[in-house]
Design a protein around this nucleic acid. Sequence first.
DNA 1: CCCCTACTGATCCAC
DNA 2: TCAGTAGGGG
Length: 723
Amino acid sequence: MDVSHILDGLNDAQREAVAAPMQNLLVLAGAGSGKTRVLVHRIAWLMETENLSPSSIMAVTFTNKAAKEMRGRIEQLLDIPARSLWFGTFHGIAHRFLRAHSRDAKLPENFQILDSDDQLRIVKRIMREFNVDETRWPPKQVQSFINSKKDEGIRAAYLPPTHSQYDHTLAEIYKQYEAQCQQSGMVDFGELLLRSHELWLNNPALLAHYQDRFRYLLVDEFQDTNTIQYAWLRVLAGDRIPIMVVGDDDQSIYGWRGAKIENIQQFQFDFASPLVVKLEQNYRSTSTILKAANTLIANNGDRLGKDLWTNGNEGEPIDLYAAFNEQDEANYIADRISSWVDQGRQRSDSAILYRSNAQSRVLEEFLIRQAIPYRIYGGLRFYDRQEIRNAVAYLRLVFYRHDDAAFERVVNVPTRGVGNKTVSDLRVHAREQSISLWQACVERLQLGLIKGKAKQSLTQFIDLIDSLSAEQDQISLAQLTEQAITRSGLKDFHANEKGEKGQARLENLNELLTAARDFSVDNDDDDEELTPLAAFIAQAALDAGEQQADEHQDCVQMMTLHSAKGLEFPLVLMAGMEEGLFPHQMSMEDPSRLSEERRLCYVGVTRAMEKLIITYAESRRLYGQEKFNPVSRFVREIPADLMQEVRIKNSVSMPVSFAASQSSSFGEESAEFHLGQVVNHAKFGEGTVLNYEGQGSHARIQVNFFDHGSKWLVLSYAKLEAV
DNA sequence: CCCCTACTGATCCAC
DNA sequence: TCAGTAGGGG
């Protein structure tokens, strides 16, 4: 068979990785170096030269989107359906294993996946049950304690002994939480991984079966793996399945959710004699942008080391704009996008990147003012919206009525007169009898322990679920969903909600119907047969859902730096480049967290293909307070000769005091200084003039020093020099 | 049960 | 500053 087409158009490094023998392989793939391409071609290569069947290849990603994209590209390249490839997220694949071996994993056949909202409810309930002080142990913190322990692979029983009452309480809640989840057959995200990890460890025969079955493993974004994911891969691969991991230590930005950058360094020691290939040729950015990125990231120690290069041209210098405040910054950004469009470019080819979501408000305001359409990425996942979760909870009950989390969620949504008292009675009853809330409810109704409105409502509720589940086999998934949201009253509930909110929620429910209609179970060959309903419910838990529909309009893209990872744009504007904001206040002290901030900046810079614009505000209103933060150290780490400072102050958004004083310069005798000017101070170094007040010998001047922040100085003593 | 008010707290977020 | 929420009063 002719396989040359698989190697065509690849550079030497890419080709080395794609055509490597069946062995462990670490591919260090710089930004824009064709990483996905290598993964996809590698799979094609193995299938065609090593005769690997699709079902003997497993490829693991972090997001469903990435998995979907890879699958699509494989199909395109090989021109065959790639159904039987095991492509998916860590969680999705773990879920699949657990489903297939639920008994060995000590789970009920119908075990349910808890999303983080369900999880928080359970934690709260346990804490109330045990009278834990919610101010000392905030439920959210308890939840993240549990999650981080699971991510580290530590069960409650294996927590180190402690004398601290605080830690002890955490451990107790964790223990209770584990017990209750087990009792009601519920599994959270971390548990999916932990449980399937244990499944293999406890069942060597089963593990051996899969080690025979899979001939090659591939992992994308390896720098984002956490402890349990790494352990999971190690156990699965053992010394029998060769594995290829692709990642970039310089783009590791998820340490705060458990990712261990060390994993990529550790790989070479834990997996036998891997071949290491570096992809350093960049096909995305101008050499100016790459040089900036390389110099910036060189400030981090302990890298595996990589230098991006390109055959492309130098391109334009990076623009740096020092705005007076965040309004001026937003206005400038809107201006730049306007002129980009005036040059005949697409708005959708431009992106505004920022460190924190709170920054988007002002930016939006000024984009609206200039009538520039925009689209904000990120925010709430589709399946995380209240109304969607409620609808899915009904489906969950139809599928499996003993799903306590779903039961609790919607017994009284929309409100039907089932109060707190009734529900807590149900809980006690269920607990005492070790039965589900559903059973408890049925029993109490039969025993006549529920009276009045509650009785009527609960009877109707039970009947509704019963009749829906009786119908489920005769009608389509979409019809079932439709029935569930109308007959439960959810639809009317939101229709009657006042304001735009209800409207938006109705639209989302309709969107869910569309999703149900389009949903097809792409069941793979030997997978146990999941009903469409079960598969749909699993998807709702494990998939973020598609972003909003209005993708077609030509919009400026706005997102956080984190969500920009993996994307590219001809024009990139990085806003809010100030100390305290970026690097963020909470990450400035700890060197390892600061390094992560720098990597985040590196990610931002390397998103730009043609033009990069960096802005910062000398004064910024944050949490109701005026902050004067110096320009970000990251900006100063970019070689000055790659940047040009833009110093046209447009007065549109300037506060009155600035605008009024801007025309008249001020100073001792001669008109030496003006707002925005860079000055030098013997002790504090360079800074920009922010403001001034008073006259003659009393005149004071406010300067925002690059290294010392903003200070008020008496002009006659300060001995400032213009720079 | 619902609405209003007072209070809190605040990077980044996939599964 | 402001959004989201807990708790009280109607």
